[in-house]
C-alpha cells in the first residue's frame, strides 16, 4: 500500500512537470526578450560584421574584432565574417562595404594560419 502511494506520488510529479513544461514551452512561452547577439537574424549579423570590419579598418585591433565577432556566433570569427560576406553580397552591399569585410576576413585568415 505504501509502495503504491509512493509510485502514485512520483507519477503525479512527472505528470505535473510535463504539464508545466508544455505550458511554458508550448502554450505560453516566455516572450521574446533578453535574447543574445547570437540569436540575431542573419541580415542584422551581416550589418554587425560590417560595423566590426569598419572598426578594424580604423584601429587595426584584430583581437578586439575577434572578441566582437565571437559575441554573435558560436562559430569561429573567420566563419562569422564569411557568413556575413555571403549575406552582404545577397543584400547588395556596396563594394566599399564588402571590401571592409573582406579585409577583415583576410586578416583573420592570415592570423589563424600564423597560429
Amino acid at each position: 500500500m505504501r509502495k503504491n502511494r509512493l509510485v502514485g506520488f512520483i507519477i503525479a510529479i512527472v505528470v505535473g512537470i510535463s504539464a508545466g513544461l508544455i505550458y511554458g514551452w508550448v502554450i505560453n512561452p516566455a516572450g521574446v526578450r533578453n535574447t543574445s547577439l547570437k540569436s540575431l537574424r542573419n541580415d542584422y549579423k551581416a550589418d554587425y560584421v560590417l560595423m566590426v570590419a569598419e572598426c578594424y579598418a580604423s584601429d587595426g585591433d584584430l583581437a578586439g574584432a575577434v572578441e566582437r565577432l565571437e559575441a554573435i556566433s558560436t562559430s569561429d570569427a573567420v566563419s562569422v565574417v564569411q557568413q556575413g560576406l555571403l549575406t552582404a553580397q545577397q543584400m547588395g552591399y556596396s563594394n566599399l562595404e564588402l571590401m571592409y569585410m573582406a579585409e577583415l576576413e583576410k586578416a583573420l585568415t592570415m592570423s589563424k594560419a600564423g597560429d
Binding site: G8, I11, I13
Partner: peptide, 17 residues
C-alpha cells in the same frame, strides 16, 4: 498526496520552462 505531487511537478515544470 497525488494532488501534492502534481502541484510540485507543475511548479518544477514552470520553473524549468
Amino acid at each position: 498526496h497525488l494532488l501534492t505531487g502534481v502541484v510540485i511537478g507543475v511548479l518544477i515544470g514552470l520553473l524549468v520552462s
